Simulated assay, not measured.
Amino acid sequence: MPAPPTPSRALVVQRLLTEHCSAPVTVGGWQPLEPWAVARFRVEGAGAARTAIAKWVRPGAARCESWRPAAECAALRFLAEDVETRLAPRVIAFDPAAGLLVLEDLAPRVALDTLLARDGAAAHAERLTAFAHALGRLGAVTAGRADSYRSRRAALGPVDREAADVQPFADHRQEGVRWATALGVPPGARVSAELARADAVLSDPGPFLALSNGDAEANNLLVRASGPADARLIDFEAARFTHALADAACLYVPGPGWLSVGDPVASGLAGWHRHALAQGVPQAEDDRLFGFGLAAACLSWALIRLRRFPALDARARGDESRSQLVATLEAAARTASNHSSLPHLAGWSDRIAATLRSRWPDADQDFTDPVRFPPYRRRG
């Protein structure tokens, strides 16, 4: 049986929807969607019966920052009303004081990562294509419209400066550089020069400046498990305008939950993403601009992940997070090399990975082996 809502939250949701609909509304059938501060519920009244999704700030949680609901609300309204696209759920109602969002229910869609983990990437090629296309489409339809989004966001309250920055994790990347140095692989002059060039393009994306949900991974795409994918992007709590190719990195480099990804060029995912992005950002058709931006995004992500080194080094032999970090560094280097960009930075990433392979014999494996490490194999 679904757990009943807490009285306080039920009353807040019910009152919010009654005010929104200007008619009595009853909330029932509360179904928490753990481990998140999210629930599905039934709405009755106001001339309709349907289900909806509630998201709220969980008191005391690590991710309870009050700016998150406002950021998500602004992004979703921007997409629905300013851009007029169906890439994401629609906002039904928002209570800033309660940190409560009521959203369109996208069921029966399910998270793409659930399907990939259950069946493997080969079984869901069409849905992976929908993922790549959605990321490219998001960049295409929002490029050049940062002012519109930022006006909406400012109207909803104070803005978290780090979350709003085009590079909110720049400090984490610098921490990764420090750990590389501690491992005995410091960046030389040429590497440092390329780091500066990569930082410059990520900080000032030019025509590639576009909206991101802040967490472009397979768990944040909902698709239908059969038939047409009919995909929707979710979780815009950390929405911001940033370099559009930062979102593409997840097609090339393992994300937090994955040990490996496939070859996006061979699978066609790279082409689907790039073509969709070019519809609104024609500069994406320029091999030099596209390759440089993608290499910068992937290598930056690898360095951000390197900041986890001390935690992983303390773990037991065989911990798969060690393998994931090695695979991430090598995949980022491989992507840069394939696009003839940032050769010194790519070589440095490979040298860091080689140092970790030597330090962690359990992570000294062939992550390009499609049998041992199939695409989108989830980290244990």
Rank of each mutant, 00 (worst) to 15 (best):
E84Y: 05
A278S: 01
A71R: 10
A23E: 07
C21R: 11
A75K: 08
Q31W: 02
E237M: 15
P7K: 05
C298D: 06
P310V: 05
P4C: 15
A231M: 11
R308M: 00
T181S: 13
A62D: 14
A238W: 12
R377T: 08
F241T: 14
R137C: 11
A333G: 10
G257F: 13
P361D: 14
C250I: 05
A363W: 12
A311C: 04
A88Y: 02
P370C: 05
E19T: 11
A130S: 02
A71M: 07
P361A: 11
L128R: 03
A75I: 08
W258Q: 06
G380A: 15
S22N: 06
D263N: 07
A249D: 00
T368M: 12
A327S: 13
D105R: 15
A37I: 07
A88N: 00
S22W: 03
E104A: 12
E320Y: 12
G255Q: 02
D171S: 10
P69W: 01
S321C: 14
A54W: 01
A284S: 02
T129D: 12
S341T: 06
A3I: 14
P108I: 09
G47L: 11
Y149P: 03
A111Y: 08
A333P: 05
P4S: 14
F131I: 11
G144F: 04
V12P: 02
T335R: 07
A210W: 04
H20D: 10
F236W: 08
A180N: 14
A121H: 01
L16N: 02
P59V: 03
T328N: 02
D230E: 13
S192L: 11
A198D: 01
P205I: 00
T335F: 08
L294R: 02
A333Y: 05
P282K: 01
M1S: 11
R378T: 08
H243E: 09
F292S: 13
A276L: 00
G262C: 04
L202T: 12
P5L: 13
A49M: 01
L112G: 02
